[in-house]
Amino acid sequence: KNAAKIVNEALNQGITLFVSDNKLKYKTNRDSIPSELLEEWKQHKQELIDFLTQLES
Rank of each mutant, 00 (worst) to 15 (best):
S32Y: 13
I33V: 11
I6T: 02
S57I: 14
D50C: 07
F18N: 03
Q46D: 12
E36H: 12
N29M: 11
K1C: 13
E56R: 12
E36K: 09
L38W: 07
E36D: 11
S35K: 13
I49L: 07
K23D: 15
W41G: 01
K45C: 14
H44M: 08
A4C: 13
N12K: 15
F51A: 02
I15H: 03
N22R: 06
L52M: 03
R30C: 08
K25I: 08
T16H: 13
F18M: 06
T53G: 07
S20Y: 12
I15A: 03
E36L: 08
L24F: 03
I6G: 00
D50P: 03
T16R: 09
R30T: 06
A10W: 02
N12M: 15
K42D: 13
A10N: 01
K42T: 12
K42V: 13
F51M: 03
S20T: 12
L48V: 05
D21N: 08
Y26E: 01
L38V: 07
E47K: 05
N29C: 14
N8G: 09
L17H: 01
Q46L: 08
E47V: 07
T16N: 07
L48G: 00
L38C: 10
L52K: 00
Q54W: 11
G14D: 05
S32D: 10
D21I: 03
Q13K: 10
D50N: 10
I49G: 01
K45P: 03
L52P: 00
K23N: 11
L55Q: 13
E36F: 08
L48A: 00
S32I: 11
I15E: 01
I6Y: 03
L11T: 06
P34N: 05
S32E: 11
T16D: 05
S20H: 14
Q13G: 04
K25N: 09
N29K: 10
K25M: 15
I6C: 03
L24W: 01
E56Q: 15
K23F: 07
F18L: 07
V7D: 00
K1M: 09
S35T: 10
T28Y: 04
K23Q: 14
D50H: 09
K42A: 14
F18K: 03
G14W: 04
L55K: 09
I33W: 03
G14A: 04
E39W: 08
A10Q: 01
A10T: 03
Y26T: 03
A3Q: 02
T53S: 11
P34L: 03
K25G: 09
D31A: 13
E39Q: 09
V7I: 13
D21P: 00
D31C: 09
T28L: 03
A10S: 04
Y26K: 01
E39P: 02
